[in-house]
């Protein structure tokens, strides 16, 4: 299949970027990133610098990849960019490829962005404080299966940032809600539950992410199908925490 690609090129954070147009020949069983590999090999051949884009596992689990494809985070399917395949496109298509757009995720080069803000949010409280060696036997505290399952569903977030890219406000509330729900559903996470939510929300706002107005674009873009109710959970935990004086 023959494709026209409009790709964002930007030399560094400080420099201005622009869209550039390329032609590439792909096959339907290629992944989207393999299609970009093919383009890069051709650019290299022609003496043009290849397009920088992030990926690592290429299995949809590390969260490293992430492109705006025709205006949609991770493209037309509900999956990560690396798991998107060219069979989702047609011969002759024009595809526009851009980096995540968010003030909290500065562009480093071409399609690569800096998502360090997510790590700092976790640093602010996205953990359970237990030093190595200090844990009781794993069976000391049973966890009802329903809570365990809900915690698991929330814990599948891969930290890709698509929710932020999708949100008109540039909010990371889905990411926040996922972590708060994961740890808050478990008995082990109760001790720090109220301080955690307050500290994480504080850091989120400090990083320059926008506020949540319940639009729900994040959920539609999330490759791991993190459900909207983690945001209600977040809000309800936050209210309780404030009531408790945190």
């Amino acid at each position: 299949m023959k494709l026209t690609l409009n790709i964002w090129r930007q030399a560094s954070t400080a420099s201005a970027g622009e869209m550039k147009t390329y032609q590439v020949e792909a096959s339907p069983d290629m992944s989207f990133l393999e299609m970009l590999d093919v383009l890069n090999e051709e650019l290299n051949e022609k003496g043009e610098e290849p397009v920088a884009f992030d990926s690592d596992c290429r299995e949809g689990i590390c969260g490293m990849c992430g492109l705006m494809i025709n205006g949609e985070p991770h493209g037309p399917e509900r999956t990560t960019t690396c798991q998107l395949h060219m069979r989702s496109f047609a011969d002759g298509d024009t595809i526009t490829i851009e980096p995540w757009r968010s003030t909290a995720f500065p562009v480093l080069k071409d399609l690569c962005v800096d998502r360090g803000a997510f790590d700092r949010i976790i640093q602010s409280g996205g953990y359970i404080s237990v030093n190595t060696g200090a844990a009781p036997d794993a069976h000391a505290t049973p966890v009802p299966k329903d809570n365990a399952d809900r915690a698991f569903d929330a814990a599948t977030c891969i930290g890709c940032g698509a929710c932020v890219a999708a949100c008109p406000n540039g909010s990371a509330t889905l990411f926040l809600g996922a972590k708060v729900t994961h740890l808050g559903e478990l008995p082990q996470g109760q001790a720090e539950r109220w301080s955690r939510v307050v500290d994480m929300v504080g850091q989120h706002d400090h990083e320059g992410f926008g506020g949540c107005t319940n639009i729900g674009e994040c959920v539609a873009a999330c490759p791991k199908e993190i459900p909207l109710d983690v945001i209600s959970q977040l809000n309800s935990d936050l209210r309780t925490a404030i009531r408790k004086g945190h």
């Binding site: 359970i128 237990v130 844990a135 036997d137 794993a138 069976h139 915690a151 082990q188 996470g189």
Partner: peptide, 22 residues
């Protein structure tokens, strides 16, 4: 065996049975 204890305490959501045990 210590690994499992440590991970559970950190909140790793291992699969559980209906009785709540791993």
């Amino acid at each position: 065996t210590n690994i499992i204890d440590q991970c559970v305490a950190q909140g790793v959501p291992f699969a559980r049975e209906y009785g709540g045990l791993l």
